[in-house]
């Protein structure tokens, strides 16, 4: 049982309060049989398309593939916006803030617990990430954009994990990823090294994430996105993090997503330089 699981008494109480009937009574069975015949008598007709699980899996794999092309991260996953459309990101801001509320501050623990749970529940993890790796990894970046909290866990052996959650959680979207990036790049004084990133999601609803390391002379990084203009990255403690709704570049339906968005790096001496922030590349 997971360490974040409910205690046994609460689980038993929950089970006792399940309102669903255990067995169908004879009347329900008769009605079920009648329903079956009525359904089979209905002419097949086109219905509004709704993705079946295997199709979603396909998109998830496609997403993983798109990211894997640029990094060794394997366990990257995305989540679609359930029914909310772009309003899901109504509070998102191009400039980040520090997390302050209890919900936001708890996001790191939630992220760790969820990633550990995923390892346990879903069999051997293809990323090779262990529970202890996740539990030991400190928070290397955290930022707030409206109701959305981004947490990045990382260690000096190239592991990083990213969780994006919506504080209000009204059926919106969460995203998570974890895996090993390309080695443990130590950036030069004026370098930006992106360790993981890409676009994830489905049904044309995507978010893009960039996580990486920066040299001590890098003061700020602004990413130029196709749909949201200039997105100010969080730059602190030698780490870089940013995310925005939509794809990194081009269009959501394009399978060959451009994973090297243009960005402007500002240095501590006030000078600037235009770079492309591709995973595994140094700008």
């Amino acid at each position: 049982m997971s360490r974040s699981d409910l205690d046994a008494t609460t689980r038993a109480a929950l089970t006792a309060l399940d309102p669903a009937p255990r067995e169908l009574d004879p009347a329900q069975q008769r009605r079920a049989a009648a329903t079956l015949e009525r359904v089979l008598a209905a002419p097949p007709a086109p219905v509004p398309p709704r993705p079946a699980p295997r199709r979603r899996t396909g998109r998830r794999l496609a997403l993983t593939g798109a990211l894997a092309a640029a990094t060794t991260v394997v366990g990257v996953v995305g989540a679609q916006v359930l029914t909310g459309g772009d309003s899901a990101y109504a509070t998102w801001t191009a400039t980040p803030h520090r997390p302050t509320t209890p919900e936001q501050l708890a996001a790191a623990d939630d992220c760790r617990d969820s990633l550990v749970d995923t390892l346990r529940g879903d069999g051997p993890d293809p990323t090779g990430v262990s529970r202890s790796t996740i539990e030991r990894a400190p928070v290397v970046a955290a930022e707030q954009r409206g109701d959305w909290t981004l947490v990045v866990l990382g260690d000096d052996r190239g592991f990083d994990a990213t969780c994006i959650t919506e504080d209000r959680f009204l059926g919106g979207t969460e995203f998570g990823s974890m895996g090993y990036g390309p080695g443990s790049p130590i950036p030069g004084p004026r370098e930006v090294a992106v360790t993981s990133g890409g676009s994830g999601g489905s049904s044309g609803r995507m978010v893009s994430v960039l996580v990486g390391l920066v040299g001590p002379q890098v003061a700020a990084v602004t990413v130029h996105t196709p749909d949201h203009g200039d997105v100010v990255a969080t730059v602190a403690g030698g780490h870089l993090a940013a995310w925005w709704p939509g794809p990194v570049g081009v269009t959501p339906d394009d399978p060959t997503l451009d994973t090297t968005p243009p960005a402007t790096v500002t240095y501590t001496d006030g000078s600037t330089r235009e770079v492309r922030l591709g995973v595994g590349e140094r700008g």
């Binding site: 996953v77 679609q80 990633l115 529940g121 969780c163 959650t165 969460e174 995203f175 998570g176 974890m178």
Partner: peptide, 10 residues
């Protein structure tokens, strides 16, 4: 319609 990690987070 979300990922297993997202479900675990929730």
């Amino acid at each position: 319609g979300i990922s297993p990690v997202a479900f675990r987070l929730r």
